[in-house]
Design a protein around this nucleic acid. Structure first.
Lengths: 238, 238
DNA sequence: TATGTTTCCTTACGACCTCTAAGTAATCTA
DNA sequence: TAGATTACTTAGAGGTCGTAAGGAAACATA
């Protein structure tokens, strides 16, 4: 008799979560190729075509699941930041960077989907969950860097010293983030981002297995460098 | 009547090349998922199962084709090096790095297969063509760095200053390359490698599209930094 | 409460894929 | 010339994606 207004909604939501969990389980346990519409449906106990009531097709399923991973990664970074809300900015930046690698290495298969998977057309639309999640992800470190720049500006090159093509690109990026970082500072931020995130990509893609078995100290060394670049005090992890 | 001894062999070789070309065409024109046994067979004009006389299965086909890409990339780098055989080492190193990016950006789909594809078990065996090709690839810049180290050593940290875990890993790597670079120098080499190759990975995986439209100047800036690190004279590209 | 609509899920199906099996024809070897 | 090897064929089992058509349950509303 009560029949809450959103009963159907709640059930649908629960089913969606079950589907996400099933897809993730298949990905982690059996690899990317095992995440098929059929297998996921089987896992949640319904028969194939039923999944088309939740996703338009395989690409959309993958996109939605990947967006979920990205949100989880972002949340881990935000939590690391907020757990240290009363500590100096220096510590918060380092904690967020470490949280990023922590999540990535704890969930390599999921992280692989985040960045090493061709983004199908529907997930490229700006309003797609995939794209929204990417924006929020990029925002975490950007926001911290903006805060740093405002309270304690780090050394940044004069844009006039950059080659023309690069100057234009960082200017465009700077404008795209509403000028919260001027072009020179944006250039420094992007350089740091490339080093950190690039290292993580290579680690998860096993591109460094030929030389390293454990990249934690390498990552810490990068963090140390980056701290120096940004004028942050580097504090070793616990 | 002449029937040269290796007639069958030659035909087989030609067919293999045709298969490689067909697979590549499908990859470039229609993406990774289009490279199926059936589609490739169709492309070369034979019916499905015939391909199993050339490859044990889909994974082996992908591995063989990828090895071919890697050989082509390596050859491009070696050629850049040899074309400048009489120029100073500084120029040759830069040329090889630029050739690497040149090939990667000219053949993004192929480069994607080289590094952003799970390497199936059979292609991980040390004697597999995939693995052999990887060794030769890694050798190009390593050899140049060794030559540089011998003729004009660059600044390298004292391994004693590195954290224990990192020290052990670079020592192991140094031993693995027959000590041609001592641990400190190996550490510098690997750091440079990570920055260059990492940037390339991110570019090809579209991880930097949010900020850049053309990464050529960014790559050049990295080369400039690396040249400074290695004590090389940076000469702008033609 | 009764009726119509929406939602969820089913089975059936066509088209495609991988890979095995079995058979044929051509080529090489001895 | 006889046998072994190689290269291919078709047939087929079992898997996939995605569409179509239909039933049953839950909801909204008169």
């Amino acid at each position: 008799m009560p029949a809450p207004a959103g009963r159907r909604q709640r059930i649908r939501q629960a089913t969606l979560e079950e589907i996400h969990a099933a897809a993730r389980k298949l990905l982690v346990e059996q690899g990317s190729a095992a995440v098929t519409i059929s297998a996921v449906a089987r896992e949640v106990g319904m028969s194939g075509p039923a999944l088309y009531h939740y996703f338009a097709g395989h690409d959309e399923l993958v996109g939605a699941v990947t967006a979920g991973f990205l949100r989880e990664l972002t949340t881990a970074m935000e939590r690391a930041r907020d757990d240290l809300a009363d500590r100096p900015l220096d510590d918060r930046v380092l904690a967020v960077c470490r949280a990023m690698r922590g999540w990535a290495t704890a969930h390599p298969a999921e992280f692989g989907w985040i960045f090493a998977r061709p983004i199908a057309a529907p997930n490229r639309r700006p309003e797609s969950a995939r794209h929204q999640a990417a924006l929020r992800f990029e925002g975490v470190l950007l926001d911290l860097t903006v805060e740093l720049w405002r309270t304690r500006p780090f050394p940044a090159p004069d844009p006039a010293d950059l080659p023309a093509s690069l100057r234009e690109q960082v200017a465009a990026y700077s404008a795209g983030i509403d000028g919260r970082l001027p072009p020179g500072a944006a250039h420094v931020f992007l350089s740091c981002w490339i080093r950190l995130y690039g290292l993580l990509c290579m680690e998860v893609l096993h591109q460094l297995d030929f030389a390293y078995t454990d990249l934690e100290p390498v990552y810490e060394e990068h963090l140390h460098d980056l701290a120096a670049t940004l004028g942050l005090t580097y504090l070793a992890a616990d």
